[in-house]
Design a protein around this nucleic acid. Structure first.
Length: 650
RNA sequence: GGCUGAGUAGCUCAGUGGUUUAGAGCGACGGUCUCAUAAACCGUAGGUCGUGGGUUCAAUCCCCACCUCAGCCA
């Protein structure tokens, strides 16, 4: 065994995405993680091949296209555009984009099929089973029971057809041995255990052809059959490196170093795929990593929730690098995670704006102010500089280990510990005090140099995750763009710049999202969640009993004072009388439709037993009832006839 | 039904081959400072480490049962 030859290309893949899908955050997540690996290795001077693409064959595509009055390829073309638009917006640096409808793919599929056939592992037979079209999966009668497809619940179809089979059973032992000998082959470990127990239960031969539809690649030895979509799709990983078209290149690129996938398709990648490759006499990929799924605001992703985390919308709202950062920082790769806008804004403000952005801005600011905008040359180091430098070096070194495990979250935590150390270093050395005494000039220069050098490290460290941000940091520090030819270990050495370069103060890296903007985002999120077509019955408003309604205390109230909440466009602070002389302070989001003057004296309905909340720093002890027109205009609930404050509303 | 994993501070999670004060981030509260994006830095916050048993001088970490959740399989 041992290490692969140094010349071998680092090859990372995403799954090819199904053109019947609407691109969503899950796709973005997989592709993004692959992008980080690709950028990481490129930065270190390795040759990288980063592949993504689309899976365009199959009965489901054929049917959807027909329903929309399109040819399958037209449907595919449209979806491909959508995917590519997202990859562009996300700054994905893929080297190739494979489509399974391309001629080169057909050649690769023929090549691997022939190899397997020559090995004697393909034989004709007959398949009878219950098939779920949307899931493209056969089920046993036991599995289906009365409930339809165990996976999606829809009715299944009985299918009996001639089919070619792949002798997967023959590779059961070899696969088991391989998984046992290579603990890194299937990750994370819990997924590995699952696959292990699956394989131990025995592998059956696999039906790999269909005759019931024709949108697919023909079986090379029998064109009346179409290849099973997974056989077709998995082969994409061989196509792009050049199987069947460019043997030399293929040799250099294959096997893949990492197949990144969602946990839902692990079995195809960790069982079917390696056995296909074994039969074809090809080396196996080194790692198959099945990452987790995202829930949204604590709920399983549904159609309407997808709107709320639509990748393009997120990028537009928060900026591409914030999205990249959040997705990889928020959860441990492999585990499921929750996407919430509150958490997002928290991360953006705390980590990116306050810690990283502010570090750059204070450093550049001081260099500008105290050193006429030129990064100074250092004099002697004290223990503080040594400690900081060693920390920076340690972080740089640690990255390799994290990347080898796809531990993006740990890597980012580690990098941001350096950011924190730099902020602390500013505090400990107080350069703004040093600047006041001429005698402290040399010391000041050392401190500012150390900070600049620390930020230069941070530029290198963050580059795979936030390439645009890294470039901005470099630009503000006045350090040259990375030269492709220069060895990374030279660039990443402390002291890699000697000082003397001119800095360029620039805009904030990440402006904080202040509370009123956060409120606006949350409102927009709520609107988007509702925007999806009328929810089906099971999503309809839940019925409640009268007791439950009675738990809400509604009272009439008179507005005695109203004033705008500072810095907020939508909020008004209201003082209302709720009966018995009691006054309460409420915050209501009605400033766009009511002026404070117009409100005083009005009778309204107020929820009086709501937990107090703080909006824009102002406490709200209740809620005013109002309706909203389709255009979004807010209208307060009032009464036909005046009612005294404190009357019960029911 | 079988198997695997998880259940730790308000929230999100880390952690230990069993030994003295169980950790971090965010939030909250108090303080320092003023170079900076009202940021940064420091300090405080008392969580029966899911429940009940067991092993042990000693268990959050080992064993058993149970509960809850997630996943894989049937």
């Amino acid at each position: 065994m041992g290490d692969p030859p140094a010349a071998k290309t680092f090859y990372v893949t995403t799954p090819i995405y199904y053109v019947n899908d609407v691109p969503h955050i899950g796709h973005a997540y997989t592709t993004l993680s692959a992008d980080v690996l690709a950028r990481y290795h490129r930065l270190r001077g390795r040759e990288v091949f980063f592949l993504t693409g689309t899976d365009e064959h199959g009965q489901k595509v054929q049917r959807s296209a027909a329903e929309q009055g399109l040819e399958p390829i037209e449907l595919a073309d449209r979806t491909v555009e959508r995917f590519q638009a997202i990859w562009e917006a996300l700054h994905i640096s893929n080297d190739d984009f494979i489509r399974t409808t391309e001629p080169r793919h057909r050649r690769a599929v023929e090549a691997i099929f022939r190899r397997i056939d020559e090995a004697g592992d393909i034989y004709p037979g007959e398949y009878e089973g219950l098939y779920c079209v949307p899931c493209e999966t056969f089920w046993t009668e036991l599995q289906v029971g009365e409930g339809g497809c165990p996976s999606c619940g829809r009715p299944v179809e009985t299918v009996r057809e001639k089919s070619y089979f792949f002798r997967m059973s023959r590779y059961e032992k070899r696969l088991l041995e391989h998984i046992e000998r290579h603990p890194e082959f299937i990750q994370p470990e819990s997924r590995r255990n699952e696959i292990l127990s699956f394989v131990r239960q025995g592998l059956k031969d696999l039906s790999i052809s269909r005759t019931t539809f024709d949108w697919g690649l023909p079986v090379p030895t029998d064109p009346s059959h179409v290849l099973y979509v997974w056989f077709d799709a998995l082969t994409n990983y061989l196509t792009a490196p050049g199987l069947g078209t460019d043997p030399e290149r293929f040799e250099r690129i294959w096997p893949a170093d990492v197949h990144l996938i969602g946990k839902d398709i692990l079995r195809f990648h960790a069982v079917y795929w390696p056995t296909f490759l074994m039969a074809a006499g090809l080396p196996l990929p080194r790692v198959v990593f099945g990452h987790g799924w995202w829930t949204v605001e604590g709920q399983k992703m549904s159609k309407s929730l997808r709107n709320v985390v639509d990748p393009l919308w997120l990028i537009e709202t928060y900026g591409v690098d914030a999205v990249r950062y959040f997705l990889l920082r928020e959860v441990s790769f492999g585990a499921d995670g929750d996407f919430s806008h509150r958490a997002f804004i928290g991360r953006l403000n705390a980590d990116l704006a306050n810690d990283l952005g502010n570090l750059l801005s204070r450093t550049v600011g001081m260099i500008q102010k105290y050193c006429d905008g030129v990064v100074p040359e250092p004099s002697e180091e004290t223990a503080l500089e040594v400690a900081f430098r060693e920390r920076a070096e340690a972080v740089m070194v640690a990255q390799d280990g994290f990347m080898a495990q796809c531990a993006f979250q740990k890597a980012l935590i580690n990098i941001f510990e350096l950011v924190a150390a730099a902020n602390k270093y500013v505090d400990e050395t107080a350069p703004f005090k040093l600047a006041k005494r001429e005698a402290d000039r040399p010391r000041l220069r050392t401190v500012l140099y150390t900070l600049a050098e620390g930020l230069r490290f941070l530029r290198l460290l963050t580059d795979p995750y936030m390439p645009t941000t890294a470039a901005k940091i470099g630009c503000q520090l006045g350090i040259p763009a990375l030269e492709p030819g220069r060895p990374f270990n030279e660039v990443s050495r402390w002291g890699g710049t000697e000082g003397g370069q001119t800095i360029h103060e620039g805009p904030k890296l990440f402006p904080r999202i202040e509370e009123d903007r956060a409120v606006a985002i949350h409102e927009e999120v709520a609107r988007l969640a509702d925007a999806e077509e009328a929810p089906p019955e099971e999503d309809a408003v839940e019925e409640i009993g009268i007791e439950e309604f009675q738990r809400v205390s509604l009272r009439t109230a008179r507005i005695v004072a109203a004033e705008p909440v500072p810095k907020s466009k939508k909020l008004l602070k209201l003082t209302v009388e709720v009966g018995g002389g009691e006054q309460r302070q409420l915050v209501a989001g009605i400033a766009q439709d009511y002026t404070p003057e117009a409100l005083v004296g009005k009778s309204v309905v107020v929820v009086t037993n709501l937990k107090p909340a703080r909006l824009m720093g102002v406490e709200s002890q209740g809620m005013v009832l109002a309706g909203e027109t389709p255009e979004g205009k807010v209208v307060l609930a009032t009464f036909d006839e005046p009612l005294e404050p404190g009357c019960v509303v029911k």
